[in-house]
């Protein structure tokens, strides 16, 4: 679906991928730059979020820094069971993201848990509930460069 974004919206989306300042009025600098009020900035963010242009606005937490763990997992879900399995998998709050992909392994999700041990427990629970194997691909090393999307 295409969406008609105003120039202001585009500037906002690009700016909001940077870190918000930790000050009493964190939108003030941005509002100044864009020559609109702070209220206008937050109203537009709300609209972009409600319209699904932004999936989220807020702090991004690193569960590993909290002593927890992430694990990429994959399942080969029979087509006729896809929706049923999806409902079961997504019901876990530990499932942070889930994507359907065009491969025999057609469901790929990321578990985020508060402890390293909880990954195995969550995987076992999903396997028990769905009767399907869950392959685990924990990251061994991250080669990461910050990514941003230009609106």
């Amino acid at each position: 679906m295409t969406y008609d974004l105003s120039e202001l919206d585009r500037t906002l989306i690009n700016s909001l991928q940077d870190d918000l300042p930790l000050t009493s009025h964190p939108f003030a600098v941005l509002a100044d730059e864009l020559k609109v009020s702070e209220q206008e900035v937050v109203d537009r963010i709300r609209r972009l979020r409600d319209d699904g242009i932004l999936t989220r606005f807020g702090p991004f937490f690193d569960v590993e820094a909290l002593g927890g763990a992430f694990c990429l997992c994959a399942m080969a879900v029979p087509n006729e069971r896809f929706e049923e399995v999806l409902t079961k998998v997504n019901a876990y709050p530990e499932v942070a993201h889930n994507y359907e992909r065009d491969h025999r392994l057609n469901m790929w999700f990321v578990l985020a848990t508060e402890s390293q041990d909880a990954i195995a427990g969550t995987v076992e629970a999903i396997e028990r509930e769905t009767g399907l194997d869950v392959l685990q691909f924990p990251k061994e090393r991250e080669f990461f460069i910050g990514f941003r999307v230009d609106a």
Partner: peptide, 11 residues
């Protein structure tokens, strides 16, 4: 490092 960043996640 508990908070990586405060901002928006675009779709």
């Amino acid at each position: 490092g508990i908070i990586r960043r405060i901002g928006a996640a675009p779709n």
